[in-house]
Design a protein around this nucleic acid. Structure first.
Lengths: 340, 340
DNA sequence: TTGAAAGCGGTACCAA
DNA sequence: TTGGTACCGCTTTCAA
């Protein structure tokens, strides 16, 4: 039903090839012909069928993004940054959410593969690299964001998670807190890196964390607030309880914060809280939340630029790592007033 | 470079047609042949090229979603609901963000049109219906979500915005507030509807709002918090200032809340605040925020189901409106303790 | 049960 | 400068 090149060609008495060339600004078309074609194109609101074009050129002008949770502000910001870059080059973004489920993610990846995307950007919730081998087989360029894999040499855009952990923990120490706990994330690069940074910061100041000081809050999904709350409740029962807590991410920190306030304790006088991600409403929370900014929008933008360059590159290029520097954002939740 | 049917056919000494039929579970293929084909398909990790398939079937198995702002939790939730429904039927979701810019939106819509999507879901930031006429021309089924247009008969999924305004305002009145202001949104169906509901609720109780009680905060984007704050600052200078404020949406309410607290006033003792949207962290804000739940995830799900049914339908069907019932969620920001 | 031929809407190449 | 022809990877139709 939509208009085709053939229709325009017939109307004008020229060939389909001529129309095609005009639309792609080929130089070797007479000016008069060109004008006639353009006029008719406008009259009919003609839109070239990108599906057909993709079939012959092998380029779909589409990039895929796979995230664990679309509503998590962190991934939403990444998506925004990515899409803003891609749009400028005529690319569209196809988004799949894995809901933090590795199997679902694998399934979505193979569905996207069938669409012959020009590139894929993945914040993975998986534990194995099988999906990535599949992508490599198809020669689709892909970029990991946020989370990376030990055994996988791949393009990557993210922060230095160990530094994240160090910054957060170091900040608590500098603010005078000593019994510092860490509500840790899942055993992926982000969770492990932040945990390592936490340990390193403590070690550097000769502080130790009792084993109960590192409860786990499984990551990033809808329920991370609930999990943060539960983890904090466990911490409050430890003797002595911590006086400062570094949380894996902001949603977890929000949950932990609520648990503390519900227990009748004060933030930051009794317990300080710092999160990670610096999400949009962090400054408006019950106690404005200190956090480590991961520059998520920039992360998306850099991933977008990298994707475009990979698509443009002829052969396979050496995988590139872009590591952004995290930044401390101190707010009231760690601001102990002269106490300590 | 990826495996094609032709490769499998050649390897097995059968025709491409046979392979194609096996993959689509056609009944008229011998069992032995079928098994051989499936085996080879597995061995090679064959993925049918959906681009090619789309060209001949006219079905892309892709739905487009256009939103003003991906990071706005409201639209993120809609996207999530939509994608969860589509995934189950093998559809993918292509997302475009208009950044609240009508021109950008029009441009994105026409780009999506070129991709021959099976359906589109749009939360529009436009003022005119030109884009929708274009979509209709191409016979692509489309659904408006959240915002609708006066002069446009189209499929729609959203809430009853007038009821939203009435619920919010009525709740403030019932809680004992009398000088009720409304920080209004843009002049689109949502903003106008909520404003009308606000007026109607006041009228019903014989209350009137001075003209200065209805400042505008332009909607939904990154800056709505800043705009909410600015609008609230204006309200604080009115004499007498309002004692209750119904805000167009939650981000605006967060801004207003911050302005009130910064001015040294208390919520809800001096001024009550109610928003709309019931976003994820509303309960964890400086003062837990009362809001009107718009059931955004459900909105996305219903839009998804409607999209699938439109795609399945043969001819054009009569446009359908799905109106969800908004629900009051009362929290501390409107809970005046025995006062009034 | 199987497959040859045509064609979906474009683009690439080369000859006119 | 213009256009004929082949073909991208798959499905559809119809004959064998």
């Amino acid at each position: 039903m939509p208009v085709r090149m053939k229709d325009i060609a017939r109307d004008l008495g020229v060939s389909v090839v001529t129309v095609s060339k005009v639309l792609r600004n080929h130089s070797d078309i007479g000016d008069e012909t060109r004008q006639r074609v353009l006029k008719r194109v406008r009259e009919l609101n003609y839109q070239p069928n990108l599906t057909a074009r993709a079939l012959v050129t092998g380029r779909t002008y589409t990039v895929g993004l796979v995230v664990p949770d679309l509503v998590h502000p962190f991934f939403a910001e990444v998506a925004k940054g990515l899409s803003s870059i891609l749009r400028k080059s005529g690319y569209s973004l196809i988004i799949a959410s894995s809901e933090e489920d590795p199997d679902l993610e694998a399934q979505e990846i193979s569905r996207l593969l069938a669409r012959r995307l020009d590139a894929m950007v993945i914040a993975s919730a998986q534990w194995t690299v099988a999906s990535f081998r599949l992508i490599e087989e198809q020669k689709t360029p892909y970029i990991l964001v946020d989370r990376r894999f030990a055994g996988l040499v791949a393009n990557f855009v993210g922060v230095d998670d160990e530094l994240v952990g160090e910054l957060a923990t170091g900040h608590l120490i500098a603010a005078g807190y000593r019994r510092i706990a860490h509500i840790r994330g899942p055993e992926v690069s982000t969770g492990l890196g932040r945990l390592a940074g936490y340990r390193r910061a403590l070690a550097r100041r000769d502080l130790r964390a009792p084993v109960h000081y590192v409860p786990e809050a499984v990551a990033g999904d809808d329920e991370s607030e609930a999990r943060g709350r539960a983890a904090m409740q466990r911490l409050l029962r430890v003797d002595p309880p911590p006086d400062g807590v570094f949380c894996y991410n902001d949603p977890t920190a929000v949950g932990a914060m609520n648990a503390i306030l519900e227990a009748g304790l004060r933030i930051p006088e009794d317990i300080a809280i710092i999160g990670c991600g610096n999400v949009r409403y962090g400054a408006s929370l019950r106690v404005p939340l200190s956090s480590i900014d991961q520059r998520c929008t920039v992360m998306g933008e850099r991933a977008g630029k990298l994707a475009l360059s990979l698509i443009g590159a002829k052969g396979s290029t050496r995988p590139k790592s872009i590591i952004l520097q995290p930044k401390l954002v101190a707010r009231a939740s760690t601001r102990r007033n002269a106490a300590a």
